[in-house]
Design a protein around this nucleic acid. Structure first.
Length: 597
RNA sequence: GGCCCCGUGGUGUAGCGGAUAAACAUGCCACCCUGUCACGGUGGAGAUCGGGGGUUCGAAUCCCCCCGGGGUCGCCA
């Protein structure tokens, strides 16, 4: 080793020790006579002192050192002179008096600050990701991710799970997301696909008798990115045999509870995890992944305003839409521009607009409220009783601001979900030290596609509730699934289900989804065949590792917890991928490039 | 594919139709400095304002197109 200790590990217990350190120059303070250098390695920072009276030679070399030079120093750990300790540094009680040093490798001036946590344009960070990752924030995130994955492995090992790798080159299943395809050299015109998730593979492992499987699995989906979506991402994939829904959910609750308590002991969480049905979540929050750190629940006002003459409400209802709202407590004093911001927020999502209704604090109480005190475009079309009824339903009092949206049901839900998050944030109700996990259960099994065909709400292997199976023949929309999602702070961090494990029921579902016998055989023959050989009842879950780490790290995007993420346009700026390939490579793969119009 | 935001010395920002074609902080370079830790002091270099086109007597500033980055709708079984 080129070093005897890590920079960050030194403390007063090392006083008197001869140490050799190696790392990067974080900062240099050259006093002419004395030179101080903050030497950084993975474990932290320690001050090293170059004194010409100790070593003239070392002092001379140190005067050449600049930011991010890779250097090695040997010397003695010494207590800092009284009054010069630095409480901001973990190692601030000591310093290393350098007797010998060498520059292992100089560095150009880096394109952005390594030693400061300032905002830098993300594309620049990604181009120089290896420098970006040197920064404290990124080092912390990488470490946290490691801790999370390590925790998961230990936890599941103790529960009797075994980790099994599954192929990355597998078969295309076009009914899901868009596949990443890999051409085959040995089979002209044929392709592998990268797994969107190891779903079918883990089910086959259950048929294989593994009983408890997990994998930290890379998954690939060729769809547009988001703050919480990348073309490749990592799942904790997990499957168990001979279990019921509660078994999975209890396992998850224990996993996340102990994870947070171990890794983020300064953070709180809500125990036990609430269970919400899908219908209830949609009703109360307008989304199936509500942020449960705060209330601000959405209420349906359709019945109250049905008789009003307000054209905004009338036309929405005439079109089969809804009128819903939320209450922003204490926000009646919002300025015109603040209200405009909220209005713009929902309009950008496609809503017609936002009806704002501040209940003047000056009224004192709802009983003393008059219509004149409600500064809203809707006020003159509503009776005082209607306003009071709306306020009552939203749990509002004077001084509160009512936010109401009318329109197509899904649009209203989406806009109010967004508004609710925004107000939760503005009112500082989204405590970053609280993790509000919850389970969403009782999802519908199916939904209608745009073409009016049945498609799975999640995937076609999800089992319907036993009592709902007969409904598959009559009213498929009423069939509920043995599916569950786990959410945290408004983020979907995982989903799973009990699976279909008989060929008969699986075939029935495929038929309902519109597959012909030929298609079923071609696409899912392997699975159905396996089910003929004693498939156990089984189920599991897939959790988004990137999202979990993002939440624990308090980051806004999963890119901050991925070492080498891709841009929104799915490019890797460090490697400049994707890139053209040589004609010979294409020929070997039996490919030619189509002319794009 | 749609909508929205951003792009000014290395970095982060200011400037948003005119006065010297750019200001501030930091970084960088040189010199000075033996207790600093965001060290300090003095001096210096460094941007034709993402690219192209247009409007104008005059454009970093207004308009159009393109490129890059981000947010989002669609999409994500």
């Amino acid at each position: 080793m080129l070093k005897s200790h890590s920079c960050g590990e030194l403390n007063k217990n090392h006083i008197g020790a001869k140490v050799t350190l190696a790392g990067w120059v974080d900062r240099r303070r050259d006093h002419g006579g004395l030179i101080f250098i903050d030497l950084r390695d993975r474990e932290g920072i320690v001050q090293v002192v170059f004194n010409p009276e100790t070593s003239k030679q070392s002092h001379k070399i140190a005067s050449e050192m600049r930011s991010e030079y890779v250097v090695r120093v040997s010397g003695e750990v010494a207590p800092r002179p009284p009054g010069t300790e630095n409480p901001k540094l973990v190692t601030g009680e000591i310093e290393v008096i350098v007797q010998d040093t060498e520059i292992l490798n100089p560095s150009k001036t880096p394109p952005f600050y390594i030693s400061e946590d300032t905002e830098v344009e993300e594309s620049l960070r990604l181009r120089y990701r290896y420098l970006d990752l040197r920064r404290a924030r990124m080092r912390k995130n990488l470490l946290l991710r490691h801790q999370v994955v390590r925790f998961i492995r230990h936890f599941l090992d103790a529960k009797g799970f075994i980790e099994i790798e599954t192929p990355i080159l597998i078969k295309s299943t076009p009914e899901g997301a868009r596949d990443y395809l890999v051409p085959s050299r040995l089979y002209p015109g044929k392709f592998y696909a990268l797994p969107q998730s190891p779903q079918q593979l883990k089910q086959l492992l259950m048929v294989a008798g593994v009983e408890k499987y997990y994998q930290i699995a890379r998954c690939f989906r060729d769809e547009d990115t988001r703050a919480d979506r990348q073309p490749e991402f990592t799942q904790l994939d997990l499957e168990m045999s001979f279990i019921e829904e509660e078994d999975v959910l209890n396992l998850l609750e224990e996993l996340f509870t102990s994870m947070v308590e171990t890794i983020k002991p300064d953070c709180g969480l809500i125990k036990p995890f609430p269970w919400l049905t899908y219908a209830e979540a949609m009703e109360r929050y307008g989304t199936d992944k509500p942020d449960l750190r705060f209330g601000l629940e959405v209420k349906d006002l359709t019945d109250i305003v049905a008789q009003s003459d307000f054209s905004v409400f009338r036309s929405a209802l005439a079109g089969g839409g809804k009128v819903k709202g939320i209450c922003a407590p204490g926000c009646a004093g919002y300025s015109r521009s603040q209200l405009n911001e909220l209005n713009k927020l929902v309009q950008d999502l496609g809503a017609e607009g936002l009806v704002t209704m501040p209940l003047a604090a000056s009224a004192g109480s709802l009983d003393d409220l008059t219509l004149e005190m409600v500064r809203s475009v809707a006020a003159k079309f509503l009776t005082l009783d209607q306003v009071r009824e709306i306020a009552k339903r939203l749990g509002a009092d004077t001084g509160d601001l009512l936010l109401i949206i009318a329109g197509k049901s899904e649009l209203v839900d989406m806009a109010l979900d967004e508004l609710r998050r925004e107000m939760g944030h503005r009112l500082k109700l989204d405590d970053p030290h609280l993790f509000a996990f919850a389970f969403i259960v009782d999802f519908p099994l199916l939904k209608r596609s745009e073409e009016g065909l049945w498609e799975p709400m999640h995937h076609p292997f999800t089992a319907p509730r036993d009592e709902d199976v007969p409904l598959l023949d009559t009213t498929p929309e009423k069939v509920q699934a043995k599916h569950y999602d786990i959410i945290c702070n408004g983020c979907e961090i995982g989903g799973g289900s009990l699976r279909i494990y008989t060929a008969e029921l699986q075939r029935k579902i495929f038929k309902l989804l519109g597959y012909s016998d030929g298609e079923i055989k071609e696409r899912f023959g392997h699975l159905l065949k396996a089910f003929d050989y004693g498939a156990p009842p089984h189920g599991g879950v897939a959790l988004g590792i990137d999202r979990i780490v993002m939440l624990l790290a308090g980051e806004e995007t999963i890119r901050e917890v991925i070492a080498f993420p891709k841009t929104q346009e799915a490019a890797d700026l460090t490697f400049n991928a994707p890139s053209p390939v040589a004609e010979e490579q294409l020929a070997e793969l039996h490919l030619y490039l189509r002319e794009e119009r």
